[in-house]
Amino acid sequence: MSSSVETPVNRRRHKNWRRRLTPYLFLAPNLLIFLTFIIWPALRGFYISFFDSIDGSNFEYVGTENYKAIFGDPTVAIIARNTAIFVVFYMVFSTLLSLTFAIILNEQRFGRGFFRAIVFLPVMLSPVVVGLIWNDFLDRKVGPLNAMLEAIGGGSPGWLVEPALGMTAAVFVGIWVHLGFYTIILLAGLQGIDRSLFEAAAIDGATRWQVIRQITLPLLKPTTLIIIILSTIHGFQSFDFIYTLTGGGPLGATTLIVQYIYERAFQSPIQYGLGSAAGVILFLIIFAFTALNFLVGRRRDAV
């Protein structure tokens, strides 16, 4: 009975409780979506990885057999190597190029909006469509790129039929699709740097390269770390544009781990459990790399 009495203490407690609850209420809709469409399927995928199912309705418990099958599959080593090559090149060049573009765009005075829109435009395209368009563009015999190369005596490289060139094309198209996204994030980071530091450097007679090296890059480090983490995750997750660009070819040279998951889970003969187990392995790899990037970044900051 006493709790219902409106004393100043009770009112304060009630107010505090409401204040604490408010942010969670704002977060609730997103959290609900996140739990329903990300966390629950992820947990379910982990569970399914211990079963075998050819139709998604009937499941037979097989313990760790799916994991053993993956590690015993000789193609997995090739796919792991492909994925590692893709991720390293994609991450390094995405980071370097987005940094370059962000710095250039940040200093741009003429046509700033136009150039930013141009850089960002590929992000707005469907990756599936991007893959198809580049597939046509890179065709060895009838593609416009080789037509241009031939016109200047550059021959007709088999972009989509030579394994090394296929990987090059996949990395290039991947960077082309996502570069605008990373550049915009870095641009936001650049604009957060105090302008007075640049003015002081100019007064001190610092060269442009010195400004970049000693002011811009160090202060942009937290944002760059985000780009490294994001591009690593995107690299591991790459599938849609590669599937329409090369289909994982030539000769499996651009078959990455997500395509392996897709083909095991959704192409005949269907093996949902095996696909899920591969998904769990991919999650662990991405988690490990992200944690490593994060820890290395933090340690450097601390030093």
Binding site: R140, K141, G158, L160, V161, T246, G247, G248, L251, E263
Partner: peptide
């Protein structure tokens, strides 16, 4: 021998074309 569209076969991986 390039008498048939090799890109369409090799360059499409495991996809039907």
């Amino acid at each position: 021998a390039d008498l048939a569209p090799r890109d369409l076969w090799i360059g499409t991986g495991t996809r039907y074309s």
